[in-house]
Computed example of a mutant assay.
Amino acid sequence: MKKLISFSRHVDRVWLEFTLSSVAHGASKTILNQKLEHLLESFIATVENRRKARNLLVSIWAIRENTKYQKFDCDALDLYLRDEQSTMSLQWGMLVARKPFFAAVARYIGRYSKLNDCFKYAQVNKRMCELFGETESTSRATRAVLKTMQELGALVKNDDGSMSIAAKVSEQDKWRVNWMLKALLLSDNQESREFHEVQQDPVWFPFQLSINESEIDTHLFEVHQQGNSLYLFLKQDVE
């Protein structure tokens, strides 16, 4: 089966924040599209490129019709509305949850950066082409994801054109961290995974996730000890 890329261009952090705020305050998809079109007119000249950006933003933050994901989506909005401040963790978590291509790029960078201080676009693109096919769509999406990561403050571009990981963000809000762990399980279509593996997955390379076993949200996960390891099992959302 051909893997879905679904990342046609980069998106700015300002656009992501605007989209999240609009959805959290009740904008329907119709209204959201109208608001985004008005916003993007100031940034993007062509109708087609505005359409691509608008569709991508809606696909990241609009609440999904599939009941499997509705509670997860609404939980993100609730976390935002607690203080109406969208830290990078919410944006990154939703990108990981909804965009497998974004998650794949993030995971590669996280693994590569454990042994290397910087990397180049060509190295990331080579790996993505191995995973998703050697096409212009893959190369374009890789550039778009890397640019989006720079916009979010996760990557910095060096003078020689290479990229490095920015200073890690410490996420200490246990409710956000629990939501991020669930995001990863949903992204990978997994029902369970070892706790420390999820917490330390390379996909979270921009973050230092502060959570211990006593802070696991039992409304989201069932917790089981298997040997020396603690496993998280996703709970089924109840309507």
Rank of each mutant, 00 (worst) to 15 (best):
Q123F: 12
V47G: 09
L230T: 00
E215K: 13
I165R: 14
E194F: 00
T135S: 00
D188R: 00
L95I: 10
K99I: 11
I44C: 10
T142N: 01
S6I: 10
K120W: 07
T218M: 04
R143M: 04
D78N: 10
T148A: 04
T218S: 02
K52P: 11
A122W: 09
A166N: 13
L77F: 01
T138P: 02
V96L: 09
H224D: 03
T135P: 00
L56A: 13
L209V: 00
L185I: 03
N55V: 05
S170I: 15
D217V: 04
K35A: 09
Q200F: 11
L230Y: 01
K174W: 07
E191C: 07
N178P: 03
K29D: 12
N158G: 06
Q85P: 06
F207Y: 05
R82F: 01
L81P: 08
E41I: 12
A45M: 13
E215N: 12
W179F: 03
S229K: 01
R111G: 14
S89R: 02
S170Q: 13
F18K: 11
L146H: 09
L57M: 15
M149C: 12
E17C: 07
D188G: 00
D201G: 02
E41F: 11
R82N: 05
D188N: 02
K52Y: 12
E191W: 08
M180D: 13
K174C: 10
L209K: 01
T30Y: 13
D173S: 12
N228K: 06
M163H: 06
D78H: 08
S170V: 15
L181E: 00
K68I: 14
E41A: 14
V96T: 07
Y69R: 07
N55H: 08
K174R: 13
L186I: 05
M163Q: 06
A45F: 14
Q70I: 07
R82E: 04
I165N: 14
F101A: 11
T46M: 05
F102I: 05
D217M: 06
V96S: 06
Q226D: 01
K68A: 15
L77H: 02
V96Y: 08
S6M: 13
H219K: 04
H25Q: 08
G153Q: 04
L186C: 05
S22F: 08
A183W: 03
A27N: 11
K182T: 13
L186R: 02
A103H: 12
K52I: 12
F7A: 06
R13F: 04
G133T: 00
Q70T: 09
A122K: 13
M88E: 15
I109F: 09
R111E: 14
L36F: 07
L16R: 05
I44E: 13
V238M: 12
H224V: 02
S21I: 05
I216N: 01
S113K: 09
A154F: 02
G110V: 03
A24W: 07
E194R: 00
T30P: 08
L81Y: 09
F132R: 00
L16F: 04
L77P: 02
F233R: 01
V124D: 11
S89W: 03
E191P: 06
A103R: 14
K235C: 05
N125G: 06
C118Q: 10
L185P: 03
